[in-house]
């Protein structure tokens, strides 16, 4: 297999309302992003076999490998060893799992083992001849253009393409290849300490409005009947002091932001 291959790590999710197992939304979004790019895509699930995996096949995924990792075991070493054999161009996955710890550590642990960069919050992938172009969701509804030329681990959050529909036929017909993991795999240290206690989540009151700290930094200010220029200057100084607009003096270091 070649650097052309894309591997999507797929986990079992849970319907937030009914609690029923299903495809994990973020993983499914990662899959939707690369199906139809023309590149070979392999799904990889580490854990016990599960019916919900067929939903990924129903989305048009031709091949799914199920790595039989025991429950409660850290799947990182197993996944990393399979990936180092496949040598994919990109590894994609949801930013965090819907069941279990949901620590969002897995992509980082795998990337660290395979010495790949992690590129978070990706909403689209375009393959060019010599590099891959990634579009990243940036707070404030903006998008950043990134390029990687080697293999990378890409994570997907809530932004991005809509989920592909699940077609019944392919979901039924698709094949899941079960693979046992070698016994001799070295264990990875689990970076998340085991919890001291676990209980149903309590609802916490949300803070209302902006906090005192951010408010107190500011005095209010009213300009009565300024001429248009004074008003414009006042608005611009305000926007600059809050850095909504950059100072020309600062721009040199920020050309990247403005290049577009």
């Amino acid at each position: 297999m070649s650097a052309d291959t894309l591997v999507v790590l797929l986990s079992i999710g849970q319907n937030p309302v009914s609690g029923r197992p299903r495809r994990a939304e973020r993983d499914a979004r990662a899959l939707s992003m690369v199906l139809g790019t023309g590149k070979p895509v392999i799904g990889l699930h580490a854990g016990a076999p599960h019916d919900a995996l067929h939903e990924y096949l129903g989305m048009g995924l031709p091949q799914l490998i199920n790595l039989n990792v025991g429950g409660g075991e850290d799947p990182t070493p197993a996944i990393a060893s399979v990936l180092s054999r496949i040598k994919p161009g990109l590894v994609l996955t949801g930013a965090r799992a819907e069941i279990g710890d949901g620590s969002g550590l897995l992509p980082y642990a795998i990337a660290n083992r395979l010495a790949m960069p992690v590129v978070p919050e990706i909403v689209s992938v375009t393959f060019r001849t010599d590099w891959t172009e990634l579009l990243q969701a940036v707070p404030g509804a903006r998008r950043r253009v990134l390029q990687v030329s080697g293999p990378a681990v890409v994570t997907v959050g809530h932004h991005g393409p809509p989920l592909r529909q699940i077609a019944k036929g392919p979901a039924r017909r698709g094949v899941i290849k079960e693979v046992a993991i070698p016994e001799s795999l070295p264990l990875a240290p689990n970076l998340m300490l085991p919890p001291l206690a676990e209980r149903p989540a309590r609802k916490r009151p949300k803070r209302i409005g902006p906090t005192s700290e951010s408010q107190s930094a500011q005095n209010r200010m009213t300009l009565t009947d300024p001429d248009a220029e004074a008003a414009a200057h006042a608005i611009l100084s305000f926007l600059r002091s809050e850095r909504f607009v950059l100072d020309p003096a600062r721009e040199a270091s920020q050309t990247k932001e403005l290049a577009s």
Binding site: L135, R142, V148, S149, K256, L258, A259, S260
Partner: peptide, 11 residues
């Protein structure tokens, strides 16, 4: 970082 930043897309 092995990732090249090509800036923000216009909004």
């Amino acid at each position: 970082e092995a990732v090249q930043d090509h800036g923000l897309l216009p909004v």
